[in-house]
């Protein structure tokens, strides 16, 4: 039990760190661009671009992270870890909403979509783990899942932002 709790905490810490890694460049870029913005329309465009990139980054990170990290973790813990991973850029989303760059509905819909994407990936990963017993097949299947998920994100980038 203690070992499970320790490994769960480590997983949570990793997800926070990964969230910070993909959020930090976005924050730096957004703040630098905002400091040069001369009017509200420019600032709105910058924040909208930042949010779009953030959502795509969330999808790509989930595509890379989920297939590799959730072989024996309980489902509840996995979902909690994913929520932490997704929630790290939320203050940036809040800033975009406060600056009237994006509506709250668009933000909520995009994040709900990301959560569903994460759950779908999690389910597919668990199914693949159950039905591929040999490690070579497992690695191949998970890599295929990662590539497929990332390809979907890249081919349909605009569908990740509602409105």
């Amino acid at each position: 039990m203690v070992t499970d709790q320790t490994s769960h905490m480590k997983q949570l810490q990793h997800s926070v760190l990964i969230g910070a890694i993909y959020t930090l460049p976005l924050l730096v870029w957004s703040l630098l661009q905002l400091s040069a913005a001369s009017n509200h329309d420019e600032a709105s465009y910058i924040l909208q671009s930042g949010i779009s990139i953030a959502v795509i980054a969330q999808a790509i990170v989930l595509s890379l992270y989920i297939p590799r990290m959730f072989d024996k973790t309980p489902t509840g813990s996995s979902i909690f870890t994913l929520l932490i991973l997704i929630s790290v850029p939320w203050p940036l989303f809040t800033l975009a909403w406060l600056a009237n760059a994006i509506g709250i509905a668009a933000i909520c819909i995009s994040q709900i979509g990301i959560i569903f994407f994460a759950l779908l990936l999690l389910i597919i990963t668990r199914v693949l783990f159950r039905f591929t017993l040999q490690s070579d097949n497992k690695t191949l299947a998970l890599s295929g899942l990662q590539l497929t998920a990332i390809s979907l994100v890249i081919i349909f980038p605009y569908e990740w932002m509602a409105g």
Binding site: L12, V16, F80, S87, V88, W90, P91
Partner: peptide, 11 residues
């Protein structure tokens, strides 16, 4: 664990 999830929300 909940404190980690609380950080972005409280922020």
């Amino acid at each position: 664990p909940t404190s980690l999830f609380a950080i972005p929300i409280l922020s």
